[in-house]
Design a protein around this nucleic acid. Structure first.
Lengths: 239, 239
DNA sequence: CGCGTATTTGAGCATCATCAAGCGCCGTGG
DNA sequence: CCACGGCGCTTGATGATGCTCAAATACGCG
């Protein structure tokens, strides 16, 4: 009976939108759902089409990007496990989604998911609250993009990713010693998220390492040696 | 019977969230609503408190701002007539709202407005779709803040305001001759919305005027002489 | 081992910020 | 009526942050 992809086994069972569904509704949704994997860098959805499906992130990190005709790019959001991907109700989603790491999705038929939201007010309510949180997060990032220095931006990004990873159970928890994790983004992606160039990101990262705020690990490895200092640096406080 | 503030007279009757309400529900909401005016520059709500009310903009322009402890500011959104102001459901709104021009609001008790949304799925649905549009708008602005040059930013702001003003029936419509309007923002506010300094905004505006893309009017007056050129400049095309 | 890609490092430069006047507008008050 | 002062905006000169270009190094992988 217990299938490997049964909802009760689901890694995001308690945090996903599904957490509001009754057992019966959950069973119904599961019949309409399927899992899908993407390797790092693979495009998940393009900009144009009115996609016929939506999904929830089971594992990995998805980046949402917008681009200018001349190739300049901006990452406008990162999705972590239990986040929702897609644009129900009308207008086509004006950005592309791409796998930043290896990604696993739980996909639903968009139309049927919309119907389920209509039938189950709790589901729609939770989706609405998540969407409101997304507005807040986007605006927080607007403050970063418009008003913060390169150093503040990089510090804020590290903290942001650390918190989201911790919240989704990846990376060594708040156990003994400093938190350690791998950035799910390349330097290019970090730059595209922060409105910087990769060289600037690289230099700021080096600065954080030489001042001991983060550990000396190479590449994407981050060790949070001094979270308080990092927090101060996100708002213009001294290093 | 016909009071001056009757909903049927309301300037935003057809575009506001209320447009989904039945006559009876509209009457109920109206009994719980009141109008409020703010002069330019007046604070409407601060950051901290879990506000007990929410509102819809009847006239004027409201700016939503976030600030860093050292005083740096970023405008994270502008509200025009028929836009919704407030943060129903839980978490306190993490930004301040301030009147940019003379503003008139139609205010509702937050709790009762939430209840109305629960009772009337159409209202909640419309609110949800508006919120999704807000996410899109915020992310569009993230692209601007992170990746556009000063010239592109100013061009985009003028177009953005022109469209929103036209959509809310202010300013000379698309009748004969070029559209003309007054910017609802000071130079400081434009800079805070674009992530620039006021001197840069001033110089970019001058450049647009000397190249004839906008008319030579002084101060906040804008005449759209060449919309196509303005649109091109928004994305890196030649002036 | 050798190649392709990601990242780091360095040097010079451009854009936009900063600093500093100056101008125009307007309400106040002599 | 005009001098005064405040404020918002403009203009100019200078400089710093972050970008561009270029090359070296490290890394992953066949």
């Amino acid at each position: 009976m217990a299938r490997r992809d049964a909802c009760s086994d689901c890694a995001i069972r308690t945090r996903a939108l599904c957490s509001t569904l009754s057992v019966e509704q959950l069973a119904r949704l599961r019949r309409l759902s399927y899992r899908k994997r993407y390797p790092p860098g693979r495009l998940i959805t393009g900009v144009d089409p009115a996609e016929t499906w939506c999904a929830q992130v089971l594992s990995g990190v998805v980046k949402l990007t917008k681009a200018l005709p001349d190739g300049r790019q901006q990452i406008v959001g990162l999705l972590f496990p239990s986040d929702f991907l897609g644009r129900p109700f009308g207008s086509a989603s004006p950005y592309a989604a791409e796998a930043a790491t290896e990604v696993e999705l739980c996909c639903h038929n968009r139309h049927q998911f919309e119907e389920l939201m209509h039938e189950q007010p709790g589901l729609k309510q939770l989706f609405l609250e998540r969407t409101l949180d997304e507005v807040d997060a986007a605006r927080e990032w607007m403050l970063l993009l418009g008003r913060k220095s390169a150093g503040e931006k990089v510090a804020a990004l590290i903290l942001h990713i650390a918190r989201r990873l911790a919240g989704s159970g990846c990376a060594a928890g708040p156990g003994p010693g400093p938190m350690r994790f791998d950035l799910p983004l390349s330097r290019t992606e970090m730059a595209d998220y922060l409105g910087l160039r990769i060289e600037t990101v690289s230099r700021q990262l080096k600065h954080l390492r030489t001042t001991g705020v983060i550990g000396p690990g190479v590449g994407r490895t981050i060790t949070l040696e001094n979270v308080a200092a990092l927090e101060r640096m996100t708002e213009g406080g001294a290093p």
